[in-house]
Design a protein around this nucleic acid. Structure first.
Lengths: 193, 193
DNA sequence: TAGCTTTCTTAAGATACCTTAACTTTTTTC
DNA sequence: GAAAAAAGTTAAGGTATCTTAAGAAAGCTA
């Protein structure tokens, strides 16, 4: 069934009995999104945290000059949302788009609150999820502050080979904080050697 | 008493009864650190998460060329550690130093685990702490990717006026990811107008 | 399969930020 | 309170990265 993966994802950190699993599954909504569809637009209320069952999504921010900054990619088995806006029920600051046809499982804020009350173990699950997200972002900040664009690109390829295959160079560039033209130049230099 | 502040900090997110408070307090260690003392050095196992009761701390990373990147500041009422290494019992990647004489309250990994078992509400507390840390870092990444150094400096002053007063320009520069000389130039331009 | 749109590449000129080094001011130490 | 150390400033020259623009390649749509 299409909910195997999310249960396995949860089982990485907490143990659920059958009844808890059923309750959890009753709270999530299955959704198909076609490639290029925007799941969330800037300014909308971000209602869901999304689990990627199949496919690939991308979260990005657009500034006043229309420059895109990719915040994160999410492939199969990842969770993605505009966390700040989801948690605080604020208008989203980011867009989330499907970069492939995707099947996602959505958990709303209200249902998450119900879940915390009925199955407090989920406090632990999301604590661990948040911990991992936090430490990942912190490492990214260190890299952004200390490495050159070329070094960051190398790290990206090593750390996220699946992403490197799934997404365009334009999107990788916007994740690294450089222009596509400059990424192109970096790649040229690399092959030259 | 010197533990008032940490109890208030916890009470922002969860309610403890007297017994739970007492148990929690039995797990924390009070420590005085003189200005310039390194609380954690790169390579050491990071045993504690630290609550700043009084004073100010700074976490920073040093790369191969001795360039410092300030990861975070922590004033009174903040929590600070090398989260990745604390959670995974790995050698620290960062230094933590006192930038003023400080009084801190330390919670070890083992005691935190005990706490989670005996008072599961703390799963919720640390979930919220991690959520806030994650969303803060994510915002910082967006700013690093989309703003100029001058804009980031302005944001820093607005967002963290207490830090701006407490820490040196050299440290602010290393938080923003620029050289002290360039921060100096930015400040000169600002006053010129 | 052709035409349209988007992505990728290349290159020239521009700019944000860095490096070095010398000097001034502030802070620390004895 | 003097000497030493650290932080902050200034300026000249250098480098990483950006902007613009044009052409080539790849992906999408009819």
């Amino acid at each position: 069934m299409s909910q195997d993966l999310i249960l396995k994802n949860i089982a990485k950190h907490i143990d659920l009995d059958k009844e808890e699993e059923t309750f959890f599954l009753s709270l999530i909504k299955n959704k198909e999104v076609d490639k290029k569809t925007l799941l969330l637009k800037e300014g909308q209320i971000c209602k869901y945290i999304n689990f990627v069952n199949t496919g690939a999504l991308r979260a990005f921010h657009v500034d006043k000059t229309d420059k895109e900054a990719t915040i994160m990619f999410a492939l199969q088995d990842w969770w993605i949302t505009d966390m700040y806006c989801f948690l605080n029920a604020k208008p989203a600051m980011v867009y989330i788009e499907a970069i492939e046809d995707s099947n996602i499982l959505q958990l709303s804020k209200e249902n998450l609150e119900k879940l915390y009350i009925k199955v407090p173990k989920f406090e632990r699950f999301f604590r661990i999820l948040m911990q991992n997200a936090y430490t990942r972002e912190q490492l990214r900040i260190i890299e952004n502050l200390t490495l050159t664009a070329e070094q960051r690109y190398e790290h990206f390829l090593l750390k996220y080979p699946r992403f490197a295959k799934a997404v365009s160079q334009k999107q990788i560039a916007s994740y690294l904080g450089i222009t596509p033209e400059f990424l192109s130049a970096i790649r040229k230099n690399k092959t030259k050697r």
